[in-house]
């Protein structure tokens, strides 16, 4: 039964992808991309990757769609009628595909517990996480502690995106005008649309609550900083859409957002440095407390908080930067 469902999902993925590429209506393409992400998330869930499914749904289907729509509002709604499909591109793509298919011939079967990928490192993580770190979600343990350095890099990638977008979008206007052009009238949001406003406002507290739940529950179930940051940002974006960006900026003003962005990254790095000062290596949480296991848990909670804070700040900064730009006439 699951197999049938999985096959169905995979087929829909391909069909959606082809539709996205072929349609000249960019708005339709972006909406289909959202559906594509959701199907991908469902597929991840079928493959037992619960954390990844949550992230793909929140980030891919949620935030990515918002960003694309924000950019679409500022650019064009349709693709110009395309030229004849370039032959060279088709050839390159087919060669690449053939090479990758060639690699299929010897790959291990899906789900085979004796495949090399399930030996060596993975069983060690599964055995040692309860012993060394003491939290149920092994993915969070690997993400936060065993490979915490990668996650630090990831937070800085997100930080780079925020300062990159702010820098690029301040190319032709003063930096102070990137979030809110001076003398811009209040946009008012969806003031005249009663139903979305009422239903939306009912939803916002629940979304925020769910976001905080995902943040703090990341060690016990699917969740963690990235997903939580995306969900909380989505709640604020919903508020901005309903009431107008200026009201959202009153709720979370610009200095606060910038503080979140810098603060989250600094918190993560600071935890690592404190470990160094206490005698361990960088990000060695065991030294944070007399009980090594508790130290690990403390370290993971702190860095996940840093991640959640940074991601919320970044996504909101990027959203406001796009939303504040004037629509071309």
């Amino acid at each position: 039964m699951t197999i049938l469902f999985a096959v169905f999902l995979l087929t829909m993925l391909v069909i959606t992808a082809i539709a996205i590429v072929r349609t000249p209506d960019l708005f339709a393409a972006v909406m289909l991309l959202g559906i594509f992400s959701l199907l991908m998330a469902a597929n991840f869930f079928v493959l037992d990757a619960a954390d990844v499914a949550l992230t793909e749904a929140a980030v891919g289907a949620g935030i990515s769609t918002v960003l694309f729509l924000g950019a679409l509002a500022l650019t064009a709604a349709r693709e110009r009628s395309s030229l004849a499909p370039p032959r060279l591109a088709l050839v390159v793509v087919l060669i690449t595909a053939a090479t990758v298919v060639y690699a299929t011939f010897d790959k291990p079967a899906l789900g085979d517990p004796n495949a090399p990928v399930h030996q060596h490192v993975a069983p060690w993580y599964l055995e040692q996480t309860p012993v060394l770190i003491g939290i149920p979600n092994v993915v969070t343990a690997v993400l936060g502690s065993f490979r915490g350095y990668d996650t630090l890099g990831e937070v800085f990638v997100v930080f780079a995106a925020a300062i990159g977008v702010l820098f690029v979008l301040s190319g032709d206007r003063p930096l102070s005008a990137v979030f809110r052009p001076k003398d811009a009238p209040s946009t008012g949001g969806l003031k005249h649309h009663l139903i979305p406003r009422i239903v939306g406002k009912l939803l916002i507290p629940f979304i925020l609550l769910f976001g905080f739940y995902v943040q703090f529950h990341g060690e016990y179930g699917p969740g963690g900083g990235f997903q939580a940051g995306a969900i909380i940002a989505a709640a604020v974006i919903l508020y901005a859409v309903l009431e107008g960006e200026d009201r959202a900026l009153v709720a979370l003003p610009e200095p606060v957002l910038k503080g979140l962005v810098a603060g989250g990254a600094l918190l993560y790095t600071a935890v690592g440095l404190v470990c160094m000062l206490l005698g361990g290596n960088f990000l060695e949480y065991s030294v944070l407390s007399a009980d090594a296991v508790f130290g690990q848990q403390l370290g993971i909670i702190l860095i996940e908080a840093g991640v959640g804070v940074a991601v919320t700040g970044v996504l909101l900064c990027i959203f406001h930067a796009f939303a504040a730009r004037d629509n071309p006439a």
Partner: peptide, 24 residues
């Protein structure tokens, strides 16, 4: 296996960051 999930969590975030910068 938990490890590919950790890698892809990172890769998803990298992807959205690139998309955001590209859109700007």
């Amino acid at each position: 296996n938990p490890l590919p999930q950790v890698l892809i969590l990172t890769a998803i975030v990298v992807g959205i960051s690139t998309t955001a910068l590209g859109l700007a």
